[in-house]
Simulated scan of single mutants.
Amino acid sequence: MSAAVLALGTGAVTVSGCVWYVPAVADLRAGADRPVSRRLAAAGCVAGWSAAAAVTALLLLGAPAGLVLGPAAAGASASVLLRVRAALRLRRERAEDARCWSALAAVPPPVRPVPQRVFVRRAAAGLLSAAGAALALLTWGPSAGAGGLFALAVPAVLAGAALAVAWAAAARGRTARDPVLTAGPGEVRPGGARARGQ
């Protein structure tokens, strides 16, 4: 595979990764408004995709393989390290939340997926599939008799279907009502007080 084709595939995947690194940049810009674990995870995401962009640029410039592998290894290492730190921090944050809820003698509310995250996950999976299909068709399509229009139409259809499915899933998440924590007769309210029937 030539460097130009590899650069095209890497660039397509990097562009489709915007559904991950654009929200991550927003989390970093929010600063203290986001938990530390979320900011660490966002930093790992940005580090990984920045390395992918650097690799794409080096491939387009015709850099040797040794020079290309340097940013790739550095970005992957930084991304993994930050993600591990984010996971450890998230465990501590959840344990602290559980202690606070137990001190209030209440059950913590269930964790439900945020509609925006549902959209990002579904769209990311579909767009990555579309990028992979585009790379495969551009690489092996001409030898199999697939024209350029077909190589563009299939990824476009896959990307459109992925965005439609992601939008529908996020819309269902927005319309779903979260359970309201209420205390009936004889049940314990936060703080230990019991609800009395009227």
Results as ranks from 00 to 15, higher is better:
S2C: 03
S2W: 02
L6Q: 10
A7K: 02
L8I: 00
T10S: 02
G11W: 13
G11S: 07
G11H: 07
V13Q: 07
S16W: 04
G17F: 14
G17W: 12
G17Q: 14
C18I: 10
W20H: 10
W20T: 02
Y21H: 11
Y21E: 08
V22C: 02
A24T: 12
V25T: 08
D27K: 15
R29T: 12
P35Q: 13
V36N: 02
S37H: 10
S37R: 06
R38W: 12
R39P: 01
A41S: 13
A42H: 12
A43I: 09
A43V: 05
A43E: 04
C45Y: 02
C45W: 10
V46K: 07
A47M: 13
W49F: 15
W49S: 01
W49A: 03
S50W: 11
S50C: 09
S50L: 14
A52E: 09
A54P: 00
L58Q: 12
L60V: 14
L60C: 11
G62T: 11
G66T: 14
G66K: 03
L67P: 02
L69V: 07
P71T: 15
P71L: 15
G75V: 11
A78T: 05
A78K: 00
A78Q: 00
V80P: 00
L81P: 00
L82K: 10
L82I: 01
R85Y: 01
R85S: 09
A87N: 01
L88C: 03
R91M: 11
E93L: 04
R94K: 13
A95M: 09
E96N: 03
E96Y: 06
E96C: 09
D97G: 05
A98W: 08
R99D: 04
A103D: 05
L104N: 02
A105R: 05
A105H: 05
A106Y: 10
V107L: 06
P108G: 05
P108D: 03
P109K: 00
V111Q: 08
V111Y: 01
P113K: 10
P113N: 14
V114F: 15
P115D: 11
Q116W: 11
V118I: 15
F119T: 01
R121H: 06
R121T: 12
R122P: 00
A124C: 04
A124S: 06
L127W: 14
S129P: 00
S129M: 11
S129I: 09
G132H: 00
A133H: 00
L137S: 01
L137H: 04
L137G: 04
L138G: 02
W140R: 06
G147C: 06
A151Y: 15
A151H: 06
A151K: 06
L152G: 09
A153M: 14
V157W: 10
G160H: 11
A162H: 10
A162N: 13
L163T: 09
A164Q: 06
A164H: 11
V165K: 00
A168P: 00
A168L: 15
A171P: 01
G173P: 01
T175R: 15
A176Y: 04
A176T: 14
R177M: 11
R177S: 10
R177F: 13
D178S: 15
D178G: 12
D178L: 13
V180K: 05
L181H: 14
T182Y: 14
T182S: 07
T182A: 07
E187W: 13
V188A: 06
R189I: 06
A193K: 08
R194H: 09
R196S: 02
R196K: 03
G197T: 04
Q198D: 04
